[in-house]
Design a protein around this nucleic acid. Structure first.
Lengths: 229, 229
DNA sequence: CGAAAGATTGATTGCTCTCAACTTTAGTGG
DNA sequence: CCACTAAAGTTGAGAGCAATCAATCTTTCG
């Protein structure tokens, strides 16, 4: 990990793109930006984990940070793949508590970091930011609950389709993920994911290379319309 | 639903018991209490649902409010059983947006309601409250993610055990739930829940009546210790 | 008393995990 | 530059858990 002092413009331009920073006055954002440093991580580097808690507000600038939780049996549940403009530790910024999440760089990445206390003070001065944060947390809760429902009543195929669809909306049709990473997102095993991907390839929906997937027929990933209501 | 003007003391004494209101100065809480009204609901009455959004901060005083989500197929996922001192709609208080959750009275219940805008203004004046709220939301996220992990690697028996254990910690050893309600909490079917409960009864762990369960051997519900670390 | 909600139990099916063996690819160090 | 190793991908066989479907019984309540 390397740390840099960035130009204010570099940080504000990230803020402009971040959903968390919407509806906050540009002068205020400039003030906040002046408190930021840039951190650079290499692929697979670990940013934070339970015993090494996070004392910064962290916003992803480039690359992708994986936030996941490991079960006692070693299974990995990825619940957030944060890309540019997304924050990775909103709760502990407020509470200062450690969480059981592991944050690691899924690719070479840079993030903007701001001291927790300073960020908190700023948030309480700019209440729209608090509202945005609560909104984001609410979406996280909804997402997890949605996932629980899907595990109950949908098959692995459907879950994988939804994962691929979501990823392609976020990163475009050329995805750089291994089958194992997809399995962690869809809550299944590598083997099952691979089997299904193989089937999709045969049907011409995707193309595969080692560690990457090209989506050829995005329409095949759309959730079916709900009839009859 | 009936609405009452409560005494300030009634509301502050609820605040005293509520985790959300910890570390906030008593005078401030008294101010907040003066804005509150009490609402009374009968069992199975619906407080809020998607098309009927919530414009109040709502804190359960007595009884139990079930917050759940229904899938397209009609399955119910209960993700919060709010009892005394718990809030039921923290996110929409901030965002004003509607959510897909359904809030219904699981038993006859009373809640304390405060106008959204007034509550928001108070929260931004008393930042500890915001911190408490974010903390609570964080716990909700963790809980849901934990549940996803458990669905992946644990059997239905284990999930039911955890549900029973959690409920008995919250409500004591005499639980008033139907097998269907337990199934909604453990993400399984009524039949499977019933089968497992029947087995538990045979082994003397619980006693059952219609709509109620008495836990005879709480120690049988404890999660097994993790060895070898 | 009738109806609705809940409880019970049996039989069956099938999805997906697990285990296992093997191939291919990428990366690394001598 | 090549050999070696680790990571990723592939495919098969088998087992088992729990969902589903179904039928019956019991309790509660209006």
């Amino acid at each position: 990990m390397k740390t840099f002092e960035p130009s204010i413009d570099r940080v504000t331009s990230l803020f402009d793109r971040s959903p968390l920073m919407q509806r906050i006055s540009p002068p205020a954002l400039k003030t906040l930006a002046s408190l930021a440093v840039i951190r650079q991580y290499e692929k697979n580097e670990i940013l934070y984990y339970a015993e090494n808690p996070c004392n910064n507000f962290v916003l992803v600038e480039t690359g992708m940070i994986r936030v996941s939780r490991y079960s006692a049996l070693g299974k990995r549940l990825t619940h957030l793949l944060a890309s540019s403009g997304e924050a990775i530790n909103l709760v502990s910024v407020f509470t200062g508590k450690t969480k059981e999440n592991v944050c690691e760089a899924a690719t070479d990445s840079t993030v903007v970091a701001i001291d927790r206390k300073a960020f908190l003070a700023f948030a309480f001065e700019n209440t729209q930011l608090v509202i945005n944060i609560v909104d984001t947390l609410g979406q996280a809760i909804d997402g997890s609950n949605q996932r629980i429902l899907e595990m109950q009543e949908k098959k692995v195929v459907d879950r994988l389709i939804r994962v691929l669809h979501g990823l392609s909306e976020k990163f475009g049709p050329h995805l750089h993920f291994t089958a194992m990473e997809l399995a962690d997102l869809a809550s299944t095993t590598t083997e099952s994911a691979l089997r299904i991907l193989g089937d999709m390839r045969q049907r011409g929906i995707i193309e595969k290379g080692r560690g990457q997937i090209h989506i050829l027929k995005p329409e095949a990933l759309m959730p079916p319309e709900i009839d009859g209501f």
